[in-house]
Amino acid sequence: MQIFVKTLTGKTITLEVEPSDTIENVKAKIQDKEGIPPDQQRSIFAGKQLEDGRTLSDYNIQKESTLHLVLR
């Protein structure tokens, strides 16, 4: 499925993911596309910070959902 990741600069990245993917996985995909190390990424969805060990389905993130990426 496709999800979108919006950065603070307003750029939107499209990722191909599975509901079973962990947040860690997703951060690795963002690193592949953007070169941002996962330890600098904070992902926010529906106002909640997403934890690395959880999966997209844990957070009820579905296709075409938009995550927000904040850098630390």
Rank of each mutant, 00 (worst) to 15 (best):
A46H: 13
V5M: 04
E24I: 09
M1G: 02
D52P: 08
N60K: 09
R54I: 06
T66Y: 08
V17S: 01
T55Y: 04
G35C: 06
L8D: 11
T14P: 06
I23G: 00
I36P: 07
G10N: 05
L56S: 01
I30K: 05
A28D: 06
I36N: 05
T22N: 02
S65T: 08
S57H: 09
G47F: 06
T14E: 07
Q41T: 13
T14Q: 08
S20Q: 09
S65N: 08
G35P: 05
Q2N: 10
T55M: 09
T22F: 05
Q2Y: 13
H68E: 11
K63F: 06
L69Y: 03
I36A: 07
E34R: 05
T55E: 01
T12D: 02
V70K: 07
K48V: 14
E34Y: 13
Q40F: 10
E16W: 14
V26R: 03
H68W: 15
V70D: 04
Y59N: 01
I61Q: 01
N60V: 03
Q31G: 09
Y59M: 03
T7S: 05
V5G: 01
L56H: 02
E16G: 05
R54H: 11
T7N: 04
T9L: 09
P37S: 11
G10M: 03
E18S: 14
F45Y: 13
D58W: 12
A46S: 08
L69I: 09
D21V: 03
T66R: 04
S20A: 08
R42H: 15
T55F: 04
T9D: 13
R72M: 13
M1W: 08
F45A: 03
K48H: 11
I30Y: 03
D58C: 04
K63S: 14
L50S: 01
R72Y: 12
G53W: 14
D58Y: 15
V26Q: 00
S20L: 08
N25R: 14
N25H: 11
E18V: 13
I61P: 00
E24W: 15
E16P: 03
I44K: 03
P37K: 09
T55K: 10
E64F: 15
T66L: 09
F45I: 06
Y59C: 02
L67H: 01
S20I: 06
Q2V: 15
G53K: 11
P38Y: 14
F45D: 03
V70Y: 12
F45L: 05
D52T: 05
I30V: 08
K11H: 09
I3N: 01
Q40R: 11
I44N: 05
V17D: 00
E64S: 10
Q31M: 13
T14F: 07
T9A: 11
K27L: 14
E24S: 12
E34Q: 08
S43N: 11
K6W: 06
L50W: 04
